[in-house]
Amino acid sequence: MDSPWLVPVSLAFGILLGAGLVCIIVISAQRGRRAVAVASADVPDGVDEVIEALESAGVVIDPSNNVIRASPGAMALGLVWNQALVHPELVALVDRARRTGQPITEELHLHRGPFGDAQIYLSVRVARLGARYILLLAEDRTESYRLDEVRRDFVANISHELKTPIGAVGLLAEALESASDDPVQVRRFAKRLTTESERLARITQEIIELSRLQAADALHNPDLVDIDHVIASAIDQNRVAADAQAIQLVGGGDKGATVYGDESLLITAVHNLIANAIQYSSGNSRVGVGVTNRDGTVEIAVTDQGVGIPEDELDRVFERFFRVDPARSRHTGGSGLGLSIVKHVVQNHGGDIRVWSQPGYGSTFTIRLPQAAQTGTRVGAQK
């Protein structure tokens, strides 16, 4: 016969065993839920909406460096490919931020995309996002870097261009002093001094003109401009230079075209194109200026029979101080700013300029402007 105290002990033991099993099950379930949460790609609330709304690049990276969220800006910059960061430099920043737990900000110079050669400049900030994720934000500074480079080149080019005539003026002044007793030498040096001073004044004026054209109010009060008068004035300004080289200047095309803008600036633009055509033409050739007026557009084409422009330099002819033939330009006193001024004048009038050229057969520069009669509105300044 069993002892009477064994029944309560067995019952208590069963209760304890059952409670233990329940605890084990609950703990296992909690651990399972935590494991699922750890394995989940869910990011903190609101992050998805922020990433989608970003105009700049935004990327969320998991502990295995897989990209689980990427903004349209990040895709456009080529930072993400196959759910991974393309650039090892970005991966290194992510690893460092994960290891140190501190936000990191750096400027990086990278290739665009996994296969592209284009260069991009980024300001990158990397920081933890919650306990598991890393948030990478990148601002595209490529245009800012490009403008800084253009400014540096512009200053360097100005210094170089001004140094030549300024140096020449100084040397000629010394030569005049030493030749004061020789009237023939004095006249010769004085003529050279006048030429160099005119060149210096021309470069300075063109720099001022180019700066004014880049201002937002370059065309604050446009008027109705007669293109026939613009062409006639520009041709007259170049008549002496053309005759000196036996170059024939010919105007033609549609009459009566009008545009809204600044007459003096348009005359300057056409004048620069004609002067450029004369400069790069050989003697006993021809420079033509034609006007076409149709479909709401006025086209002014300046065609020469000169040396032409190599294909790989066509995209650069409108850059400041760029010269197809530097030796010829320096001999004739060209500053390298003429075509850049033309481009800005045309852009400020709401138009564009195109160039066709073939080495040995000449070039054609075509200005396209909105026709006043059909647009019916004045064209404001464009930067």
Score class of each variant (00 low, 15 high):
residue 125 R to P: 03
residue 56 S to A: 14
residue 45 D to N: 07
residue 152 R to N: 07
residue 93 L to V: 06
residue 80 V to C: 04
residue 114 P to A: 13
residue 144 S to N: 07
residue 52 E to A: 15
residue 138 A to E: 01
residue 129 L to V: 06
residue 66 N to L: 12
residue 87 H to M: 02
residue 148 D to A: 09
residue 120 I to Q: 07
residue 117 D to Q: 14
residue 131 A to V: 10
residue 152 R to D: 09
residue 107 E to I: 01
residue 75 M to E: 14
residue 130 G to L: 07
residue 131 A to W: 03
residue 39 A to T: 01
residue 93 L to Y: 08
residue 89 E to R: 02
residue 49 E to N: 06
residue 109 H to P: 05
residue 140 D to S: 06
residue 80 V to P: 05
residue 85 L to S: 01
residue 152 R to H: 06
residue 118 A to P: 03
residue 86 V to K: 00
residue 41 A to R: 07
residue 63 P to L: 04
residue 140 D to L: 03
residue 118 A to G: 12
residue 135 L to W: 04
residue 79 L to V: 07
residue 134 I to Q: 01
residue 145 Y to N: 10
residue 75 M to Y: 12
residue 140 D to H: 10
residue 60 V to P: 00
residue 152 R to C: 04
residue 75 M to F: 12
residue 120 I to S: 02
residue 86 V to H: 02
residue 51 I to A: 04
residue 137 L to R: 08
residue 101 G to I: 12
residue 60 V to H: 00
residue 143 E to R: 11
residue 79 L to D: 08
residue 43 V to L: 09
residue 114 P to E: 15
residue 145 Y to D: 06
residue 99 R to K: 14
residue 113 G to L: 07
residue 146 R to Y: 11
residue 127 A to Q: 15
residue 133 Y to L: 15
residue 125 R to N: 13
residue 69 R to F: 04
residue 74 A to V: 03
residue 70 A to Q: 03
residue 67 V to S: 05
residue 53 A to R: 10
residue 68 I to W: 04
residue 57 A to C: 07
residue 72 P to F: 08
residue 85 L to M: 08
residue 117 D to G: 15
residue 123 S to I: 10
residue 65 N to K: 07
residue 129 L to K: 09
residue 79 L to M: 12
residue 65 N to F: 13
residue 128 R to A: 14
residue 99 R to F: 08
residue 120 I to N: 02
residue 90 L to C: 09
residue 80 V to Q: 02
residue 57 A to I: 05
residue 47 V to W: 10
residue 97 A to P: 01
residue 115 F to E: 15
